[in-house]
Design a protein around this nucleic acid. Structure first.
Length: 462
RNA sequence: UCCCCAGUAGCUCAGUCGGUAGAGCAAGUGGCUGUUAACCACUGGGUCCGCGGUUCGAGUCCGUGCUGGGGAGCCA
């Protein structure tokens, strides 16, 4: 018989007979002649209540059903006579598919996030993590829809790369060489990378940007959305060694157009979540972050503030706020500065643009003042930096000079420089951390809790 | 990598001044009941993170290691 999803049954307008659901027991309450069983199948936050009468042939087994057990229930969907729910299923059959032993680690009470991380393989069976995973899926679809509506081409840039996107962080090495046997063989040491699989040093990607630029300069508007790796020893609640990044890249687009797209992306994704993910979002608003809904509404309904780096430094130094790190022109903004701007100064998202060239990588376009580059960071309350991007340097000579200044070898970037030799045009793009977006939308404060199986320094269980 | 905090029953936690281990939930048994993280009674359950030290005596104090968390740097 067709397996119905609980999501659809609880939205039903009429009784329905017969129906079949399959899912996992959340709790069982026994009465004299029957039992209440709450089933969740992951299709939505809500459970459905099943009435299992003592007349069922396996009622003895049903009364021993434990939390976490898998069952298939057939019966009729009828109006509930109890209070908490509109519909319930009067079972004609409760088939036990897989019993959970009594040491099932998820109890019906609240667990700490720290404990749930130690059982990451089971935590999606909880309300909070089930909701987080559904939201992750919905937001991924919303991102694709956003770009598709605007005519962007979804491109796939390599996971294994030879070049690093300079300045983006430490790299994970990819190799088929065996370090133990190589160490014992001095000749192997000498031969080095040429013996390796690719005949050169290879790493996991830290950004698809350089490749994406090449495709933007052919297809116009493109974006990547995929995994990204940073081997930084960062121990914070908003960094992971493996995360997903959304990277649009647009030909014939300057910094202003870039900021427009970034703002429009975040606002429409937040609106989408508020409209389409109501039930799951309500859970976060109730149990995770009571200020969530007002913060999301503020983001969706207001234009973002745009201030230049120079204006931002002025605002900060004149604020009178006692910062741990003093502000001065030429220094990169510290976390406390970024959060002050977005949380105290403006109380909404802020885009800071035109940073001093010394603190930004070579590919960002040099402004006419010769001192700043056309970079922009989008800062949002609580999370801080969620997007970093720039207009790219399209002038070959200027790009080569900047690479020389930063000590980069032109030869290694020959293909990148080629794009500036053959029909170079103004183009821009940015990177948005997908998990940081999820943290923004759910109010979940640790990046490890919006990733099913997070990778952080010293942690690769599961 | 640096700074700070924590580690006690399966889970969440309490444990006073250093004096020999407690609660709720979970589990087991029984009862009651259209219940809503159901309820009531009883039962079982401990390497107090590891190692070393101080002390007549350490869950408690000191040192050290490990693990987890928060903050900083780096960034998305």
């Amino acid at each position: 018989m067709h397996r119905a999803k609980i999501l659809h049954l609880i939205a039903s307008q009429t009784p329905c007979d017969p129906v079949c659901i399959k899912g996992w027991v959340r709790t069982r309450r026994d009465s004299r002649n029957f039992s209440f069983i709450e089933i969740n199948d992951g299709s939505c936050l809500a459970n459905i209540q099943v009435i299992a009468a003592e007349t069922l042939h396996n009622y003895d087994e049903i009364r021993r059903l434990t939390t976490g057990s898998a069952v298939a229930v057939t019966g009729s969907l009828v109006a509930s006579t109890g209070k908490g729910q509109q519909w319930e299923i009067r079972a004609t059959s409760v088939e036990i598919l897989g019993l959970a032993s009594e040491n099932f680690p998820l109890q019906k009470k609240r667990h700490t996030d720290e404990y749930l991380r130690t059982i990451a393989h089971l935590r999606p069976r909880t309300n909070k993590y089930g909701a987080a995973m559904r939201l992750r899926s919905d937001m991924a679809w919303a991102i694709h829809a956003f770009f598709r509506e605007r005519g962007f081409c979804y491109i796939h840039t390599p996971i294994i790369t030879a070049s690093d996107c300079e300045g983006a962080g430490e790299l994970f090495r990819v190799t088929t060489l065996n370090p133990a046997s190589d160490a014992a063989d001095p000749k192997a040491e000498e031969a080095g990378n040429s013996r390796d699989f690719f005949g050169a040093e290879a790493n996991l990607t830290v950004s698809g940007q350089l490749s994406a630029e090449m495709l933007a300069l052919a297809l116009g508007d493109v974006y990547t959305f995929g995994p990204t790796f940073r081997a930084e020893n960062s121990n914070t609640r908003r960094h992971a060694a493996e995360f997903w990044m959304v990277e649009p890249e647009m030909a014939f687009c300057d910094l202003a157009g870039n900021m427009d797209l970034a703002e429009s992306l975040i606002r429409s994704l937040v609106s989408f979540a508020m409209e389409q993910c109501r039930q799951d979002l309500d859970l976060f608003a109730r149990f995770v972050d009571p200020t969530l809904m007002t913060r999301l509404a503020t983001i969706a309904e207001n234009t973002f503030v745009r201030v230049s780096y120079a204006e931002a430094v002025n605002l900060l130094s004149q604020s009178g706020h006692p910062f741990e790190f003093p502000v001065s022109y030429g220094c990169d903004l510290q976390t406390e500065h970024e959060r002050y701007l977005t949380e105290s100064c403006f109380r909404k998202p802020v885009i800071v643009y035109n940073y001093p060239k010394e603190i930004k990588p070579f590919y960002m376009r040099l402004n006419d003042d010769g001192q700043t580059v056309a970079a922009m960071d989008v800062l949002v309350p609580v999370i801080g930096e969620i997007i970093g991007g720039s207009q790219r340097e399209e002038r070959l000579e200027v790009l080569e000079t900047r690479m020389r200044d930063q000590g980069l070898d032109h030869a290694r970037y020959w293909w990148y420089l080629d794009s500036r030799r053959f029909g170079s045009v103004a183009h821009s793009g940015f990177g948005m951390g997908f998990e940081r977006l999820l943290m923004l939308v759910t109010g979940i404060s640790n990046i490890r809790d919006v990733i099913p199986f997070p990778r952080t320094p010293g942690s690769i269980e599961f």
